[in-house]
Simulated assay, not measured.
Amino acid sequence: MNKAFVKESDQNDEDAGPEAPSLPAGVKNYMTVQGYQRLRAELARLMNEERPAVVQVVSWAASNGDRSENGDYLYGKKRLREIDRRMRFLTKRLEIAEVVDPAVQPNKDQVFFGAEVLYMDKAGQEHRVTIVGVDEAEPLQGRISWISPVARALIKAREGDTVTLRTPAGVDELEILEVGYPEA
């Protein structure tokens, strides 16, 4: 079939953007122990389970003959590229990871990486956040990246302190109510 009638691009899938936020230049990739273990487990699962299963399907589909209209083959090759891209990404992130165990933080009364912080904004709303690595951030679950504006405002503050958070909407004052470090 002529490529003019097939909705495929000639671009390599590796040109796709990053899967997670990139780190600022010269900054370490801090991670909690749990975050590091989660990424390693995902890499192992992709390498030992998913990739071999997809390779088997692609091999079977390729043996069926005409590959141009073989959905199993085309989808399998696409999925294989996605898995390989994710494995490369995880490998690079794990190579530069700096694992930090918040449980051994000596200054538990001050906000640092891994801290769980309860703060109140100037509207009177309370928020509980845990400061984690870039690859572990889940803002809707209260897990914010250590390079986020809120985390940067909170870092080095103590219970009772009020810190200034500058946002596009203006300046907000955050009063720190609690600082704690979850046990591993």
Rank of each mutant, 00 (worst) to 15 (best):
P21M: 10
V57K: 11
V134T: 13
Q110R: 15
D10I: 06
Y75G: 04
N70Y: 02
N107Y: 14
T167E: 11
N12W: 13
Q105P: 12
V171R: 12
L39C: 08
E19P: 06
Y36Q: 10
R81L: 11
T130F: 08
E50K: 14
S59K: 11
S59P: 02
E178W: 05
K7W: 02
V100C: 07
L94G: 09
G160T: 02
L118W: 05
V179A: 04
L154M: 07
I131L: 11
I96P: 07
I144P: 03
R158L: 00
V58F: 04
V179Q: 05
V104A: 14
M47K: 15
G160W: 04
D66M: 07
K122C: 07
E8D: 12
N2Y: 05
A62R: 12
Q11D: 13
T91K: 13
M31H: 10
L46N: 09
K77D: 04
R93S: 10
G35V: 00
R86S: 06
V117N: 00
I144K: 07
T164S: 08
Y75K: 09
A123R: 11
A157P: 06
N29R: 11
Q34H: 12
A62E: 13
P168Q: 15
Y30P: 02
M31Q: 15
F89D: 09
K108I: 11
Q141H: 12
N12T: 15
T32W: 09
L177F: 06
L39Y: 00
G114L: 02
L74P: 00
R86A: 02
W146H: 15
E14V: 11
F112A: 14
L80R: 02
P24D: 00
K78V: 08
R85A: 09
A169N: 14
R152F: 01
G26Q: 07
L90S: 06
Q34K: 13
I131H: 00
A41R: 13
G26K: 06
A151L: 03
G114H: 04
V117H: 04
V6C: 05
L39S: 07
D109R: 08
E19W: 08
V58S: 01
F5C: 01
V134D: 07
R86Y: 01
Q56M: 15
I131R: 03
F5V: 05
Q110I: 10
N48E: 15
D101F: 07
D172F: 15
V150W: 03
M87F: 03
T164C: 01
L165R: 05
A44I: 02
K28P: 06
A103T: 14
L43G: 02
L39F: 04
A41G: 11
Q34C: 03
A103C: 13
P21L: 12
V27A: 15
E49C: 01
